[in-house]
Amino acid sequence: MTDVSPWTTNPDPHAYPPANGSLADLLERVLDKGIVIAGDIKIDLLDIELLTIRLRLFIASVDTARRAGIDWWETDPALSSRAARDALAEENARLRAELDTLRDADAATDPATDVPERVG
């Protein structure tokens, strides 16, 4: 089967992709092409191929997951900054709860543990 994108139905000369081009096509162009005139701010980009592969895998997994009704990418801290914040908040809450438990336990056992020390 041959896949020719529906660009032929787009007569507007000023409408540009990525409406029908893939994200990899877009990255290939905006990251790697265009005339380079030295900017003041340098950024250290990984290999374009690596970046695009990473993005492609991310999108592929999101698509697959969505079809399966899974939304792990929204809760995986490595993939979402919002999830990262949620994870931090969650960890914070858990640690506070643990701390409270320990404090309570400590307060309850304090007299018992103190006595032998003072005596000893």
Partner: peptide
């Protein structure tokens, strides 16, 4: 199999 997309802004031809 052939696939195509366009028209693109000529990113690939913007070079010295």
């Amino acid at each position: 199999e052939i696939s195509a997309s366009g028209p693109w802004i000529p990113y690939s031809f913007a070079r010295p």
